[in-house]
Design a protein around this nucleic acid. Structure first.
Lengths: 186, 186
DNA sequence: TTGCACTCATTGGTCAGACCGACTAGACTC
DNA sequence: GAGTCTAGTCGGTCTGACCAATGAGTGCAA
């Protein structure tokens, strides 16, 4: 992992940890670089990714601010991609994919907040469509950390999706994911 | 427009101009920076975007190579997003959007190769969903420049899409875009 | 006291030059 | 001729500096 590539998740962690939300200002680049122990150019390369995604918005002379996407818009796009990914994954998943799903589901049941997004990424990867996987990854990164609270209902829904994928039931997997997203929408 | 942000399209132009395709090597960063008249850090910030998208793949000690996405995978994702965008655009388009469509269609009829992608971006913007617009923008950038040849059939298909959008016919706009993508797939 | 113009420290944006480790091709050895 | 060694190239990173835009505090004028 290169330094610049590693900066991106660390910035995200910092945002979550400090509880920064839309409109808040990030520490200055010089400050961030010092905190993370990297140079400013490397720090900027890491920030660039989040800026391109639309998560951050720099204002010259003022600072860098949290932008973030509208949740409704986000769910609309998720509904276009993630059920489709679940369907494809039911057809293309490998034994390695299935093992990864099991591990992630275990973490999810243990209450790990990050494993929900990991599962989404794993489904994208298992779809066998790298463009789709990439698009979903971008959606995951668009959200402020831990956007969804991990509860019993979510665990149940995700378990259902994984079961359908394991069974090779494409239509069922798609439906299960759609139902989950439908719930988030309301 | 910042220097770094301007680097990205210029790199793309250079790729098209030199006719580089998947697997080819890009000139070195030092050379590119000199050619474009920017510093290496700025050049790298521009490259970073294309690397994150998956268009370029750097190999330390060797060079930076064109990666590019599988066309079939790409069309599959386009089929999920762009007909949906057309449908939303039919509902949300403003007078400004319509004027932009007309201008772009004129360019398209004149044989401008870039206007096809411009239309796709304009439809995404007109959808009113910024996340969707962003996702489509990423898909556009994923393709090697001028992936689709502008011919009579394409002009006809795009004209149909715009007409449906102008009429506020969401279902029709969606259908017209799907038909266009279906053709590209075969 | 109030309002405004000004000043200046801070911030993102950019540049120049340097060093490092990884890679590759060509020279060299056996 | 096959394997090894070496020097040059490339991406990755750092340091330190300057620029332009911003905005808050300052001081002056009304």
């Amino acid at each position: 992992m290169s330094v610049a590539a590693d900066v991106t998740p660390r910035i995200r962690e910092l945002i979550v940890q400090k509880g920064l939300t839309r409109g808040d200002r990030l520490p200055s680049e010089r400050e961030l670089a010092a905190d993370l122990g990297v140079s400013r150019p490397a720090l900027r390369e890491g920030l660039r990714h989040l800026i391109d995604l639309g998560v951050l918005q720099p204002r010259r002379g003022s600072g860098t601010y949290i932008a973030g996407a509208d949740n409704e818009d986000l769910l609309d796009v998720r509904d276009r991609l993630e059920p489709h990914a679940a369907r494809l994954a039911a057809r293309s998943r490998t034994a390695i994919d299935l093992a990864a799903f099991d591990r992630i589901l275990d973490d999810l049941r243990a209450g790990d907040q990050t494993s929900y997004n990991e599962l989404r990424l794993a489904l994208g990867a298992a779809s066998g469509n790298s463009v789709l996987a990439h698009a979903i990854s971008n959606l995951v990164e668009l959200e402020p950390g831990g956007s969804v609270r991990v509860g019993n209902r979510l665990v149940k829904e995700m378990t259902r999706v994984v079961e359908r994928v394991r069974d090779g039931d494409g239509a069922g997997a798609r439906q299960a994911m759609r139902r989950h997203l439908r719930r988030l929408q309301s």
